[in-house]
């Protein structure tokens, strides 16, 4: 299985390459990709430098262009596709059908991957993108159970990449607009969820309140660890209960499922975190490289080593990890 690692900037790209990534993914410095954060991402010049570095180490490079342009902005996405083709990236990761069509007609040699933001959760949807745009690979949303992943791959016309580690979307990607409901900006339209520009941290006599677009997301008693106010991971009230009504602040970690994922025919596993530091990228890449190597050496006896799990736990959101939807026993 290919290990696909995040590169929010050039130092992250280099450290991912140095620690054993098979592929790295990055984006332009604007709203054409779903990690549109201040200070993150690449200019075309930096991209060229990154690609050169990756090539020298035989690591593939994917460009994420995975937001949804509206008519007045389409030109910028179009230019970004042209630049990607010119840079010679190994694949373009896109979500919008209009963008995919432009890429497939104007740059037929450019490999296309359907982004997780493309929201394809079943093989009929995958067939649509394959029939119309000739996509080579798709990244599955983090909502499928292991048996659904297996069944989807059996019927898929394209190879499948799944998320293995990092922040967890509990909603199906590409069709969640909770963020824009509170802030006007969503991953689809702006390339960011719960954008920092709309976050307020307010000291109160009892501790710290975090608000997003004015909406109270989290109320931290004094001394409690303060997490980022991602909307779906807030604490809300339903009936008489106050709790994480949608999702706990946890990270996805599917390492113990590696043998099952491989048996299902998963071609690549993805590490989330272009917004994280180069140190994070280095650590996580190193551990996953070690795990994949151990698995390939002796698939029958693979189990995650306790020190890997402990180290990954330390860099996880909320310092806890989950198998996400993969372990659901139901359909």
């Amino acid at each position: 299985m290919e290990l696909v690692c995040p590169a929010g900037n050039l130092p992250s790209l280099k450290t991912a390459v140095d620690h054993g990534a098979n592929a790295v993914y990055f984006g332009f410095r604007d709203d054409t990709n779903a990690r549109h954060f201040a200070g993150l991402n690449f200019t075309p010049a930096k991209m060229a430098e990154g690609i050169e570095y990756a090539r020298r180490h035989r690591v593939r490079v994917f460009l994420a262009l995975n937001t949804y342009p509206q008519p007045d902005g389409f030109k910028r996405w179009q230019t970004a596709v042209d630049q990607a083709a010119e840079l010679g990236v190994d694949a373009l990761i896109a979500a919008d059908p209009g963008v995919l069509e432009y890429a497939s007609t104007h740059h037929p040699k450019l490999n296309l991957h359907l982004s997780v933001q493309g929201s394809a959760t079943n093989y009929e949807a995958l067939r649509f993108y394959h029939d119309l745009f000739g996509i080579k690979r798709a990244v599955l949303p983090r909502v499928l159970s292991m048996s659904q992943v297996r069944h989807t791959i059996e019927n898929s016309p394209v190879e499948i990449e799944v998320f293995a580690f990092g922040s967890l979307c509990v909603m199906v990607e590409g069709r969640c607009i909770l963020s824009s409901y509170a802030t006007g900006r969503s991953p689809n339209t702006f390339g960011a969820c719960s954008p920092a520009s709309h976050v307020e941290w307010i000291e109160t006599p009892n501790g710290l309140d975090t608000r997003l677009g004015g909406v109270l997301i989290q109320r931290h008693p004094k001394g409690e660890n303060v997490g980022y106010p991602t909307l779906c991971k807030g604490t809300f009230r339903v009936g008489n209960n106050t709790y994480h009504a949608i999702e706990e602040p946890t990270s996805l970690n599917v390492m113990e499922l590696l043998p099952e994922l491989a048996a299902a025919g998963v071609k690549a596993i993805k590490i989330e975190g272009r917004q994280r530091s180069p140190v994070y990228v280095g650590q996580v890449t190193r551990i996953w490289r070690a795990a994949l190597d151990a698995f390939e050496r002796d698939p029958a006896h693979f189990t995650p080593r306790p020190e890997w799990t402990a180290e990954l736990g330390k860099v996880s959101e909320g310092a806890q990890t989950t198998l996400g939807a993969y372990h659901r026993p139901w359909q």
Binding site: L178, A245, R328
Partner: peptide, 20 residues
């Protein structure tokens, strides 16, 4: 306004029931 869809059932979660 429909804002999101998930593999998880939040109504069942609110009632402390597993989705299955």
């Amino acid at each position: 306004i429909p804002l999101a869809y998930s593999a998880r059932c939040f109504t069942a979660r609110a009632r402390n029931l597993p989705k299955d």
